[in-house]
Nucleic acid binder design. Structure first.
Lengths: 227, 227
DNA sequence: TAGAAATTTGAACCAATGTTCAAATTTCGA
DNA sequence: TCGAAATTTGAACATTGGTTCAAATTTCTA
């Protein structure tokens, strides 16, 4: 890699990092090209030397974040552990991505502003991740590590809890990223209910637990185009 | 209530409903006054007869949604059930709010665009809800209904899973609101881990479960100003 | 039904901002 | 060090969209 190409790559990375931070704070439409540029001591005109337009930055930011989580996915898949360990590994990686650095939080960003062509590429990548996640939940249930859950619903709950981190976590907080990540993983994986036999006796009347859930029949799937 | 006042109230409600739907799709800054107006067969000028400006609509939308969930909270608190039943009740209500109608999804909207004065009012209401939620989690843990969790982290995980519904649920989906709500409540309340003694034996090595969590020392709290 | 009050309109204004581009500046290889 | 390539600038442009407001229209009351 030539020296200039390296410079260019660093520059692009810096732009994306600045953009993610700004998008997270003000939303895509609420962020101006000037805001993205100024934290890098640039002028907005310079950004157009690297990207054709603002939407391309939004795309790059999403694409990069998805590549990162998909890389974690394929790493996890190479592992020969059982599904539940793989899932734990993957979730820990996802949390880490949300908590350390800025790049990852793009996973929680809106992408409604993308053009149809770019949108479909992003949605395809996202779906690849989500389906893998559901498969792990499903397998884990079959292997007995987890309760048998509706994979789609459980997956959405999981993703919600994790992606929501982008809304409340701030790297300047007193607790380090590792602390928060470890703590949060415990919560998300452990769930809220006690696991002893005593509880089972007291709470069979629990109305909503679905032991072998009928698949959710693709509810609301077409709506996932935006945001 | 006079006839005109009623008309006015309905009009305002319709505006807010249209606004929430648009904000959810395009974000606050990505939504134009014209978009809010057009689904009501109005022109954007008319909106200024009811609201001074766009930001006031954003405020009203948040304020209304928070009032609604806080009303559910005080209803639940009047109940004489144990903490875990109260929590279940509250969560079910929150899910219902997210799933039926548009108004509720404001709970998942960004509020970074609010002026400092309005922002602080919204944040105060939100905190009131979140603290009550944490208290219930804490009490439930002490009473033995739940595992003993770090209330802050567990609360954030819970809110994330629920508020994220706004990103994927669409009322036109094949599964009714009740189906999704019931299913989702089961997932969120039940958590992911099996509860049998067999599991306990196999998984004591589970690395991240924190039985009596040290309080998270206010990690990242100041960051919660935006989004 | 007539006049007053409430509501809506639509055009005009203007600040903000994404984008372009020719010129200036910097970096780099020879 | 020189010249070419890479990069940055800053001003100008065009459009969008929030806001205002006087006039038109509708709704209500006496």
């Amino acid at each position: 890699m030539t020296r200039q190409a390296l410079r260019r790559e660093n520059r692009i990375n810096a732009i994306l990092e600045s953009a993610v931070a700004a998008f997270r704070r003000h939303g895509y439409h609420g962020t101006t090209m000037e805001q993205i540029a100024e934290s890098l001591l640039m002028t907005k005109g310079s950004l157009y030397y690297y990207f054709h337009n603002k939407e391309e930055i939004l795309f790059a930011v999403h694409d990069q974040a998805l590549d990162r989580i998909l890389a974690e996915l394929s790493r996890v898949k190479k592992t020969k552990s059982c599904a539940c360990d793989q899932l734990e590994d993957l979730i820990a990686a996802h949390i880490r991505i949300m908590v350390e650095g800025f790049h990852g939080t793009a996973l929680a960003l809106e992408f409604g502003a993308l053009s149809p062509r770019r949108l479909s590429r992003i949605v395809a990548k996202r779906d690849r991740y989500e389906h893998a996640l559901r498969n792990l939940i499903d397998e884990g249930g079959r292997q007995g590590c987890f309760r048998k859950l509706d994979p789609k619903m459980a997956g959405l709950a999981l993703l919600g809890a994790i992606n929501w981190i982008a809304k409340w976590y701030h790297p300047d907080g007193p607790a380090g990223a590792k602390d928060v990540a470890g703590h949060f993983l415990g919560i998300v994986m452990g769930g809220m209910l006690p696991r002893g036999a005593a509880w089972e006796k007291n709470h069979q009347r629990y109305r909503y637990t679905v032991e072998r859930a009928a698949p959710t029949s693709g509810a609301a799937e077409p709506a996932r185009r935006q945001a």
